[in-house]
Amino acid sequence: MTTSAPIAVLGPGSLGALLARLVALGGQPVAWWGGEHAPLLERRARRRGERDAGTTLPPEVRRCATPEEALGSATLVFLAVPAGSLLDLARRLGERLSPDRLVVHTAKGLEGPSGRRPTEILAAEAPARRLGALAGPYLVAEVLAGYATTLVLGSRFDEVHQAVHDALATERIRIERTHDVAGVELAGAAAVALGAAAGLCSGLRLGSGARAVLLARARQEALHLGLASGASAETFGGPAGLADLLVATNDPEGLGYRFGRRVGAGEPVASVREDAEARTEALRALEGLRTIARRTAVPAPTLEALRDILVAGAPPAPTLDALLRSGS
């Protein structure tokens, strides 16, 4: 199914611009809203080597001043905002995210202490029902540079799978499809959270062994949370899970990694959080995973310890020492 209606991409920064570019290069009409914080995000993107972010889009991309304008009559809508901003955007758009639209978010993370996944936020705020979660082990700079990339789309609806495939798939970009929405979202949240954990280990100058044990335990706990929430183990072991985790924990320029490294190196959490350029979804993801652990009664001591350090400011070294010695 190739839609003749325009596709809307709502989202600032490099990811939103990337999606708009890809849709346009595929020959479909696209409207893009870059958000109010475009300059900040473009600075970040340039630092990460995403030189093209938002500045050299194909002329076919129609730039819009507001998300409402971009939405227009689009049947396929990408919400390319972080998990922490999704609620505000969903509330702003409200009933405009109508049931005849296919709505796909790219947020990797959770809402925060509520533990809500992005599709749960959308389901609570908007009438649109055919939702999707786009995730996977991709880096915007690599996609722009033409590297082969796999994205994962989680949606209950085959229509959504087909529409996203038609919009984005190319010879270099492969879209894997799954009905396991919870798995894609929780695995993505875990990857984001563990990116920060990897940075923390780097800042603390932990050895490879200790780092590996910490990350493996945290991943295992996240898997159990996922299973308790109805996700499938296969998703956690695939591109949306393990592969994404490998990218996040080995990307020193990733936001979460850098946050964790600064905390591990001794900066107080509060001061790192005040730095707007350091805002990361990892903290919300850790809060959310803790809530899910308590709700599902799944033991998650490693994730809890990471949350205590990176969110609540517990002393990193003693907290991790105690955790690793406890063997749990």
């Binding site: 003749s4 209606a5 409200g94 009933e95 109508s98 049931p99 005849d100 389901a123 609570a124 705020e125 908007a126 009438p127 029902r129 055919r130 609806f157 085959d158 229509e159």
Partner: peptide
């Protein structure tokens, strides 16, 4: 979910027409 009226037809429209779709 927020108590706003919504047109039930929009759940089954494709290109403006109501259609059956077994999976959906």
């Amino acid at each position: 979910p927020r108590g706003r009226a919504v047109d039930p037809r929009s759940f089954v429209l494709r290109d403006g027409e109501p259609v059956h779709d077994a999976q959906r």
